Each structure stands twice: as C-alpha cells, then as structure tokens.
Amino acid sequence: MTTTFVSPRLLMIGGGSVGRLAEVLGQFGLSKPLVVTDPWMVSSGTVEKALAPLRGAGIAAGVFSDTVPDPTDTVIEAGVAAMKGGDYDCLVGFGGGSPMDTAKAMAILGAAAPGVKMRDFKVPAQANRAALPVICIPTTAGTGSEATRFTVITDTERDEKMLIAGLGALPLAAVVDFELTFSVPPRTTADTGIDTLTHALEAFVSKRANDEADEYALRAMRLIAPNLRTVYREPSNAVARAAMMKGATLAGIAFSNSSVALVHGMSRPIGAHFHVPHGLSNAMLLPAVTEYSLNAALPRYAEAARAMGIATSAEGDQSAGAKLLQELRDLNRDLAVPTPGAFGIDPAKWDGLLTTMADQALASGSPANNPAVPDAATIVSLYRRAWEG
C-alpha cells in the first residue's frame, strides 16, 4: 500500500519564532510579502509582531486586512485584486484560521483563469495550483491551517461553506509561536482548542486514516487533552500554551493527510447560516456525533481515550469508549460551551434549515469519512440532539 503524505517544507516552532520571519523568507529567496490579516490585528498593533522583524531586515511588506471571521468569496476576490496590484512574491497569513484560509484561497484563485470563481474549486475539485507561495503564522492554537492542504470559504450567493482542497492550499512554511496566543481570550481559547482536539480525533477515526497520519493525531491528543482546560483557566501558562500550539499544528498535519469527518461536515453549515465560530460549532456537535459513531470504530475511539489520558492501557475498549464520551460532555461543561439555543439561535429558523444543513453537510464529502456514514435523516436527528445538548 502506498501512502501520500504532505506537509509544509519548513516548520519553525517555538516561543519568539515570529521574530525570525525574515530569516524564513530569506531561505526561500522571498523579499516582497503581502501580509494577510484581520482588522483587529491591525488596530491592536499585534500585526507589528510580524511587520517589525521584516522592517528590521529591510523588507517592506504590504498589508491586506479586510478579512472576515468566516472568509467569503467576495473577500477573496478583493484580496486577489490587492495581490495582483502589487509586486509581491509571497503571501503571509497572520492571525487565526480566517486570515490563513484567506491567504491560501487568494493564492488559489490568483492562479486561475479570468472568470473562474471560488466555487469552481469546491471539493471534489482539486485546487493544486497557487499564484504565490504562502507562509502561515497562527495566532490561535486551533485551526491547524498553517499545516494543511485545505481552506474553507463561504459562497455568499448560496450561503454555503465550501471545503477547498489541494496542494495549492498547502503553505510553503509555517512559523508557530505560542507566545502569540497569550492575549487570546478564554472563549476563543476554548473554541479553537476543541477545534484542534476534533481535528486529531476525527483524523484518527476517519475511514481515510493511515499509519503516518495516526502518529501525528495521537501525539496531538497527548498534548491537547491535558492542557486545554489549563489554558482556558490560566491564559498565561507558557507550558500549556506551548503544548496546545504544537498540538494544533500536529493535528493539522494529521487531518491534512487523513481527513476530518462528520463533526466538520455538520459544523460548516451551522457556521454559514448562523455565524457560530467554527470551533464552537464543532464543540456543540462533538459529544452527540461521537456517541453515534462510537461502536463503528470502538477500538480506535478507545485508543484515542488512552492517548488523551482518560483511560488506562489496562482498560477494555468499551470502558475506554464510555470514558471518552463522558470526557467530551465534561469538557463542554468545563469550557462553558453553549447549546445552539443558548448561543442565541432562533429555534424556528434552526428547525427550518435542518434539511438544508443536512444536505450541505453530505455534499461536503466529510461525512463519508466517518466510521458510521449517516444519511440525511440521521444528520437531522443529530442536529436535534445537539440542540438539546
């Protein structure tokens, strides 16, 4: 059996590493970056952590900061116009998943022929070409986008979150500096943390799992599970922040080479229709979806529980699986994850969109990777269980 494995050509991981950004660019002969970030990174001055070391090396960077929390095709088109309007030789995605996903999508769309839309790259299409190389600098420990061949973009005409996959979305390099996460507020820390745990768990139980991706998924779970509550309660805990940041990148590598599954397939429509942050919608779904899937891959879920440290090596699979389900419920309680209703979603609108969301989840392809593959009716029932919490 042959396994294809992809990852960025360079990963620089460690506290203070953002200060070496110019060095990273220099290794690839790059000197004219367009930094893709968000308005808060600019207004707060946080983007200076990337721009200052570039200026110190004599590199004048452009800035595109019109990104939005759930990247849209219209923002990507504006970003491509900015990219083509300057003499740039690379993109630097600086921020959470949205700026990084935006930079990756800009690189893909920028390489396309005139008239091609972002939706033309939606899976199962392969987005393998990029106009410029992308260097990613995450400021949250969650999405793993700095290490993946995926980007998620909302089609504004169809109100649909599109999964876009291919080598064109794979960053050339990533600078992973946990010190950038110290100022992340507890709610975002929790949401992105559960997102990265979901990446690792789904990569491990996916029908497309493989030995190489498994190693990264297990290592990620060993780092994330003991530290997620700590970073939520102790934002300045450097040891826990470093573990979460590394875990997020490892989980990104894992699912980039395996896949995500039903949780992510169901999560994207919630984000598209109700603007729930991606990690939070994952958290709302994770216990119910895991319970539905458990017996279809019990040995795998049990091994994940052992990697997370919530079951011992001596315990049987049934006991370990039960402990995993309880841990996911307890984690949502401890991290104050709301139900969709408590988040503020209108129940009538939720019920009215369940069939549409189920169809969109199936169309994404991710549910087909799940250990138990649902039909639309099953997905609707799982959305209802998530509503009940």
Rank of each mutant, 00 (worst) to 15 (best):
M1Y: 10
T3F: 06
T3N: 09
T4F: 07
S7Y: 14
S7E: 08
M12D: 01
G14R: 03
L21R: 05
L21Y: 05
A22W: 01
V24H: 02
L25P: 05
P33V: 13
L34Y: 10
L34M: 07
D38E: 05
S43Q: 10
V47T: 06
L51T: 13
P53D: 06
R55S: 04
A57P: 08
G58A: 07
G58Q: 02
I59C: 04
A60G: 09
A60Y: 12
A60I: 12
A60T: 14
A61L: 05
F64T: 13
D66H: 09
V68D: 00
D70G: 10
V75G: 03
V75E: 03
I76Y: 01
E77T: 15
G79D: 07
A81V: 08
M83P: 12
G86W: 07
C90V: 15
L91Q: 05
L91F: 05
G97A: 10
G97Y: 12
S98N: 09
A105K: 05
M106C: 11
A111W: 02
P114M: 07
P114C: 05
K117Y: 04
F121W: 06
A125Q: 06
N128A: 07
A130L: 07
A130D: 01
I135R: 10
P138C: 08
T139Q: 03
G144F: 03
S145K: 13
T148Y: 02
T154K: 10
R158W: 00
R158L: 01
R158D: 13
E160K: 15
K161L: 13
L163C: 12
I164H: 08
L167R: 11
G168Q: 00
A169R: 09
A169F: 08
A169S: 09
A169V: 07
L172W: 04
V175G: 14
V175H: 05
V175N: 07
F178W: 06
E179Y: 06
V184L: 08
T189D: 02
T192G: 04
T198E: 02
H199R: 11
F204R: 08
S206L: 12
R208L: 15
N210G: 11
D211T: 15
E212F: 11
E215P: 10
A217C: 08
R222I: 00
R222V: 01
I224E: 04
L228V: 02
R229P: 02
V231I: 11
R233T: 00
S236A: 10
A238C: 10
A240R: 11
R241K: 03
A243K: 08
M244N: 07
M244T: 03
M244H: 14
M244G: 00
K246F: 04
A248H: 14
A254E: 06
A254H: 10
F255Y: 13
F255E: 09
S256W: 00
N257H: 11
V260E: 04
R268H: 13
P269G: 14
P269V: 04
A272N: 03
H275K: 13
H275D: 04
G279D: 04
L285Y: 05
A288Y: 15
L294G: 01
P299N: 09
P299W: 14
A302I: 09
R306D: 00
S313I: 11
S313H: 14
G321R: 12
L335V: 00
A336M: 10
V337F: 13
G344R: 13
P347Y: 12
D351R: 14
L354C: 02
Q360Y: 11
S364H: 11
P367V: 12
P371T: 09
T378L: 12
L382N: 09
Y383G: 03
R384T: 03
R385S: 05
R385G: 04
G389T: 08
